[in-house]
């Protein structure tokens, strides 16, 4: 194998790393649970890093889910503010992703779920190649207008629990329109992770933007 071919092979074998951030209870873990069968059907080899404050709660939930082999999930205990380990010093998460990549090679995709945080949380691009931010309608229709860095800067914004809009007095069309406006037109998707509604489009975005499918 030539040096060029070896280099191309190494790059090809390197998994895409995608962050998932968002407030507590917005549906980050449910999003992963909804995406797993879709990526399985597409033949995508996938692993997950979860972040919790002082437990392995989300990792154990996914390991018990039957949706993914338990050894493909690693939990990181942040021990402090969740954004610290995805932005200021993402060493713990980089090491966890590297470990998965070494053990499970070849991998196509590693999802890195942040612990629940506030609207200011963002991912370091030293850790991920691309990141999504998940909010939900029950948090209030005015959330996009507050222009939190998570909402403004994420590569993909997901507004989850779309089915709850009429029950919590949220104008879903207005919420999505305002979200698009503060994001300068970058993508905003509506989902209902419980039913799977909208998740195909999330998978399509990841397939195009980081898995480099045509």
């Amino acid at each position: 194998m030539t040096a060029e071919a070896a280099h191309a092979a190494e790059a090809a074998a390197s998994a895409a790393r995608v962050g998932i951030g968002g407030p507590v209870g917005s549906g980050k873990t449910a999003l992963i649970e909804g995406l797993l069968p879709l990526f399985h059907a597409r033949g995508t080899s996938l692993a997950i890093v979860t972040n919790d404050l002082v437990t392995q709660e989300d990792a154990e939930r996914l390991q018990r889910s039957g949706l993914i082999r338990p050894e493909r999930v690693v939990g990181v205990e942040a021990g402090a503010c969740p954004h610290t380990v995805i932005r200021e010093d993402p060493t713990l998460n980089i090491e966890a992703a590297d470990l998965l990549e070494r053990q499970l090679r070849p991998l196509d995709l590693i999802l890195i779920e942040s612990g629940g945080d506030n609207l200011a949380s963002t991912f370091s691009l030293d850790l991920v190649d691309y990141w999504m931010f998940v909010i939900d309608v029950s948090g209030g229709g005015d959330i996009p207008r507050k222009r939190g860095p998570g909402i403004v800067r994420a590569d993909l914004l997901i507004i989850n629990k779309s089915d709850l809009a009429p029950h919590v007095g949220v104008d879903l069309v207005l919420m999505q329109t305002e979200a698009s406006a503060v994001r300068d037109g970058r993508p905003v998707l509506l989902t209902n992770c419980r039913t799977g509604e909208g998740l195909d489009r999330v998978a399509d975005h990841l397939a195009h933007d980081v898995l480099m499918e045509a």
Partner: peptide, 10 residues
């Protein structure tokens, strides 16, 4: 400048 840290981009 920030995007140069990405390893994958379309």
């Amino acid at each position: 400048a920030a995007d140069t840290a990405r390893k994958r981009l379309r």
